[in-house]
Write a protein that binds this DNA or RNA. Structure first.
Lengths: 234, 234
DNA sequence: CGGTACGTTGAGATCGGTCAAAGGTTGTGG
DNA sequence: CCACAACCTTTGACCGATCTCAACGTACCG
């Protein structure tokens, strides 16, 4: 975690020490259990150690929209700790392990260690950048491309987390969840994935996605990793 | 500006003084001119004093998606100053006046005045919350509701900026721009707006939108102001 | 007064949604 | 080890919201 934050902003020993001395509780969440519920106050910040997690909102009518997916190394609750009441839900996608840090401690930390605060801030700015790309994905791309783009983004981010293999990666999402993330129906996700497969852009086996030719998929989806700010150095 | 920031986090005289002593240049942008271009480095942070501004991205194929609209009192460049290279474009919607503050000064400020940094951070977190709502709007609501929701959001935010009247507000966006913001075509925006008008939910006259019954429009669009975090007090 | 940008309208096409049923997979208990 | 349930994927037929293309109308501006 400290290693990741250092990529966001320069830290000194004083900062690192403060980070290391944060108290935290290890917690396990089962698939589809809630880490945060809309309308509640957050008292802990959680850092994902293992597993995947997603943010989700519901319309009045009850349709679900997944607005982001998070991976090991991501913080999922910086927003809720500073904004008090949560405006969305966070659920476990897979079984996952997290570190829960009391909000008070984080707030105290950022007030006394500005550089740590800045590193965390940068983290939320990258999340925001990903939101912007998702708006475009859902608003302006046709179904096939939308899914291909999502697969590219996951590939890039999972690679950073060390969760990809040379030929592809494990994607533990149902087609219904993919639909909720892309603004499509599960039926149409199914057909679109088959179409991608027919184009030889992806190969699916169980929950594993193989990508025979990264460059071709990238090109087909219009993906450009710029918005992930993976280069983010001090 | 200071007044607004104080709503985000508690500041003391020391903080206020530092804010007041920031140097800045006043600038004017003509409609549709660029404040930020994708791929460039930002050297100034801009605070909107007057006028409207929008963020925009283009797909490979050239369709435009507006990902946010900003109003007087909003910062439009915090992201770019901390993330170095801009991942999207920012354009003036109307003629507007801004204050441009050198990035170096802001960075120095947040390193020495953590509470100011926190206030600015909260500001970007609210932007992120709005992005999430937009993802849902574009992903899961039918056209009429999508537009109605956008109109509700603008109403709520313009009210804060003191830019509404009792019966409605001035909305200087073309139907094409509304389409770019909602992921629709200008043609369909036209038809949907007419449908809203036929339902007596809105009345349009030039660039002015009247809302005969706020509660009915709110209900019809599924709008809830929670995500705007307007309550955000220290 | 003419040009330009924006709004409006119609006809027809298409992408993606709905509904419904039939396979597959996985896990569980007998 | 089998049977069954629960959940997920796949498929077909049909429908409808939204897009496309193209024309026409309207307001503003020099």
């Amino acid at each position: 975690m400290v290693r990741k934050l250092e990529k966001r902003a320069p830290l000194d020993d004083f900062d690192r020490e403060a980070l290391a001395s944060l108290s935290f509780r290890r917690k396990i969440y089962e698939p589809s259990s809630y880490l945060v519920r809309e309308g509640t106050l957050a008292e802990e910040i959680t850092l994902i150690l293992e597993g995947l997690v997603y943010r989700q909102k519901l319309t009045q009518e009850g349709s679900r929209q997944i607005v982001s997916v998070h991976m090991p190394g991501d913080f999922v609750d910086l927003e809720n700790s500073l904004l008090r009441v949560a405006d969305h839900n966070v659920q476990a996608l897979t079984r996952c392990e997290v570190a829960a840090i009391p909000v008070r401690e984080i707030i105290a930390l950022i007030d006394t260690h500005p550089r740590v605060g800045r590193a965390l801030w940068v983290d939320t700015l990258i999340d925001a950048s990903i939101y912007r790309e998702w708006i475009m994905n859902v608003g302006r791309r046709p179904a096939k491309q939308r899914l291909a783009h999502l697969l590219c983004e996951f590939a890039a981010r999972l690679r950073v987390a060390g969760l990809t293999r040379e030929d592809g990666y494990r994607l533990p999402m149902t087609q219904e969840q993919l639909g909720d993330a892309t603004g499509l129906t599960s039926v149409h996700v199914n057909r679109s994935l088959k179409a991608l497969e027919a184009d030889n852009l992806i190969v699916r086996r169980r929950q594993f996605v193989s990508i025979p030719d990264w460059e071709r998929l990238r090109q087909a989806s219009g993906f450009s990793g710029l918005y992930l700010h993976l280069d983010q150095e001090a």
